[in-house]
Design a binder for these strands. Structure first.
Lengths: 338, 338
DNA sequence: CTGAAAGCGCTTACAG
DNA sequence: CTGAAAGCGCTTACAG
């Protein structure tokens, strides 16, 4: 695209040195405001566009924070991205998003981010191994959201799974569930499924209840259908709102003796899908804003951009769940959508 | 994060010159394979990580393609991002995603991308003015998806709105609609709403049918509810699948005399939401794969990376719609979800 | 097949 | 308050 105009061009046109242009453009207080004005006007007029790669190379800081998302289909990630965007923009930095699910597909985007010398990396439910994550943590400040900590220098922020499981199960028991079914995606896709399943199993066991796990895959949730025909309606826990939609349609279509589902359902993430009238899903809400702010702060502290002194080992923060109760867990009220 | 190891470090350790390391790392054929092996091994062992910003500065090409998405909530954007990702990866380039809806919120992410010297910019339904877009087109190869062309050097790829409107309206007429309602988001948010509305209005007018437009905002779609109580069920056109969900719940909840909605509904984008059993939306499908491939090719041609010679003025490509017919437009069959 | 050298556009001490 | 200069890590003709 033609030749880009550089600070040198601006300096020449404004009759000052190259260094001064840089200072003026970056708002250094040690530039006379009259000079600054003139330089800015010249830059504007010449159509000067800053070159962030050159600045990054020279200054040693890119002002970039990288985000890896498994996909862009789950509205929960929209929450997360927006919240991070805000925390990042507030620091005058830029958020770069890349997408990759699974270990293989995550590697390339992450490497690209590292090559751009991001000052921090936020990974949401990454499918990378603990060992790989620790390795990343040595190369760059890393904070995980929604995945348990691999150790090393990697910080993590996640839901208190134990408390969430407790809240979910006790709610379902109150709704009349005598046994439980956990519907989760392929654990390869969401590494957190294993941990969540264990927390739920522990909470169920404590009450002497049985918990079965079924996987939601491309063929739907045949396992759930089988569970529903057994005696006694189970309480159903969906790993997230997306999975919950699949579970919900199985529940509704297998409703024994009535137009409404009989099995109470609870899911996680509390996205807009959960609050939609036709689903009205009881769902575990996470304080995404806080999580995002902490994540950005953590990586900035590790990069030396903020805070004082060295950050030592991994920080593992856990946030309290809030159960947003809706109709899916009180089938008596009957779902709408009919 | 400690000091990163550079090519100079690798050169020293391997006992070769700095230039040779660069050539070896980039797979230049003019490096003896034995030498290359040794250099690669040394780099690996030292934990060398390429610095893309330095490479970009030195070579004059970043290998980056920027994508601006309005949000990450609409599953259609997941399609688009994945398809672009594929086309970009195939060229060994990297896709950088940023998010911003509205003119104001789009500016910063776009500037950040430009500062990183992306070799091309793909903007999905951008809310920027024609003038701004033409300006961008002077600074960088730009391709718009789903928005009409601003002229200048900006290429565009979009649905053939005339053909789509024709297909949608004739389908609704066959489904018994005697008048029409178009449900769209705030045109500030999706600049394509205006154009789509006009295409629909033209198609309706040609049949002597009336088309009213109602806006879907935070308060829901009160306008649609009013329309539905008027005499004669209208055919409803939703601007996209997200809007369609809102429209659908209004239609279902206002069903006069039966459990199923009476107004046939058609939407655009054909995302997974449309194909879900409980919605079963008739929706206009777009060939996203082709669109993405073309978009990447267009910007690469303009950047001089591909093709021969200069690309002149704007190329405006239009793609044929395909109507995926489902139950929402044949209310007689009755929606599920009961 | 290999090396020495210039330069990409910027930032930043260091002198004045 | 301003300027001259070194250097960030890499790529790439240009010689050998």
């Amino acid at each position: 695209m033609g030749q880009m105009v550089t600070q040198a061009d601006v300096a020449r046109a404004a009759g000052v040195s190259r260094g001064l242009v840089s200072l003026a453009l970056n708002g250094s207080p040690s530039v006379a405001s009259s000079t600054r004005e003139r330089i800015l006007a010249t830059a504007e007029q010449l159509g000067y566009r800053p070159n962030a790669t050159a600045a990054s190379l020279a200054s040693g800081r890119s002002g970039l924070i990288g985000l890896l998302l498994p996909d862009l289909r789950n509205p929960f990630f929209d929450f997360v991205a927006h919240a991070l965007q805000e925390a990042v923009a507030q620091r005058g930095m830029t958020l770069l998003v890349t997408v990759g699910a699974g270990a293989r597909a995550s590697r390339r985007p992450v490497d690209a981010l590292l090559a751009l010398r991001v000052e921090g990396l936020v990974l949401v439910s990454p499918a990378l191994s603990d060992e790989e994550l620790r390795g990343l943590g040595e190369a760059c400040p890393v904070c995980l959201i929604g995945r348990c900590g691999p150790g090393g220098r990697v910080d993590t922020i996640r839901l208190d799974e134990r408390a969430a499981a407790e809240a979910v199960i006790s709610h379902l028991v109150r709704a009349g569930a005598g046994r439980l079914v956990y519907v989760c995606p392929d654990p390869e896709e969401d590494p957190n499924a294993t941990e969540r399943g264990q927390a739920l199993a522990a909470a169920a066991r404590q009450r002497g209840l049985r918990l079965d796990t079924v996987v939601d895959d491309v063929s739907g949730v045949p396992g759930l259908r089988e569970q529903l025909v057994l005696a006694g309606a189970p309480g159903v826990v969906a790993h997230n709102d997306i999975v919950a939609l699949d579970a919900l349609s199985v529940i509704r279509s297998s409703g024994r003796g009535g137009p409404s589902g009989v099995a109470p359902l609870v899911s996680y993430d509390d996205t807009y899908l959960a609050s939609r009238e036709e689903f009205s899903l009881t769902s575990v809400e996470q304080p995404v804003g806080t999580m995002a702010r902490d994540a950005v702060r953590f990586v900035c502290e590790r990069s030396g951009r903020e805070g004082d002194g060295e950050v030592g080992g991994a920080r593992n923060v856990t946030v309290a769940p809030v159960l947003a109760v809706r109709r899916s867990s009180s089938p008596g009220a009957g779902p709408s959508g009919a």
